[in-house]
Design a protein around this nucleic acid. Sequence first.
DNA 1: ACCGAAAATCCTTTATATTGGAATTTTTCG
DNA 2: CGAAAAATTCCAATATAAAGGATTTTCGGT
Lengths: 191, 191
Amino acid sequence: MKDNSEIVSLLGKHLQQIRKEKKLTLEQLAKKSGVSRSMLSQIERGQANPTFGTLWNLSRALGLDMSELVEEFESSGPISGKIDVLLAADTPRITNAQNGCTLSILGPHDQVEQFEWYELQIEPNGILDSQPHTQGTREHLTILQGAAEVTSGDQTIQLNEGDTGRYKADVPHAIRCVGESTLRAILVVMG
Amino acid sequence: MKDNSEIVSLLGKHLQQIRKEKKLTLEQLAKKSGVSRSMLSQIERGQANPTFGTLWNLSRALGLDMSELVEEFESSGPISGKIDVLLAADTPRITNAQNGCTLSILGPHDQVEQFEWYELQIEPNGILDSQPHTQGTREHLTILQGAAEVTSGDQTIQLNEGDTGRYKADVPHAIRCVGESTLRAILVVMG
DNA sequence: ACCGAAAATCCTTTATATTGGAATTTTTCG
DNA sequence: CGAAAAATTCCAATATAAAGGATTTTCGGT
């Protein structure tokens, strides 16, 4: 297993902080949660790595959500402190000349993401036709310039400059450029 | 310890669902997370009660927050099947005439999101000066038109049309419009 | 300082989380 | 359908989470 003693130790400190805030002794929390005082002591000092079930019992005893118990740690990990730049020339693009579409990938792609965002450009009468994404995915389309006709499932709607449309993307869907000017838009995909 | 086999079993189902959605095999997830495939198999079938450290490794590999992994499991609310439209005229905007800034809020705001996106407009020499957001937040700025000077912490960089900058937003940071033309850009905030 | 009494830590034992590889099941493809 | 490949589950061995009791530390009050 990867080394995660650091994060386990932080969890312990966090737990202790919560217990102290609620002015509970190890004994009291042990009684309430069903987790032994010795285990609590070890967890708080980073000497044990509690199971999910133990954390669940603790969260119930403390009147917290699991997510509240672990929320301090959501976004740690090695993140660059400097400004990362992606030059226009280096921006990954997907072009479909046939349909007059260009999709510029603006989001970072160095990890598994649940969000992606793109700048979309479609020539007059061009169309971006998409297969369903994974269950529950939604798309958010904001028109920067021109006008679009959006189809999701069996519904079709027109969006004009500045409008935003939100729709299911786990069914077949399409974006068409209507009018004579090139369509420019921001497309956000949330999985 | 109190009986919590029920909740542990639900966690397993939840994990399997996420893995399948991302089209990963046990082997692939094992490699990425450092958790053995047999352990993954047991967890998914509710036959094992993973430690906090194991969950942490899994959440990193899946690109999720801990809180998303351990979320209340019944919570998949119904999502609208129709296309929701936000007209340009109704788009919420934050304007700071003093500094020549307009921020159009493009993301949905019906729930607490860890992801927000905006269209940003700044007049020449205008500046958008921001206080630190919560720990771990990053911003992604793509220039649609004009040029910007971005400062994050003690670093400053110039971005031109089409460029994207990514930087820490949990420190004081600012975006300034440089050159004579109005700056237009897409700003994505990931918490 | 010296005393309890309460709280936290240490120690031993037991239960089980975790692993690597073998066996089985499921999928793919001719 | 049958064989090969891929994916998952089973199994034996090891590491460690968890419990319960013994020991040490903390901290009032006198």
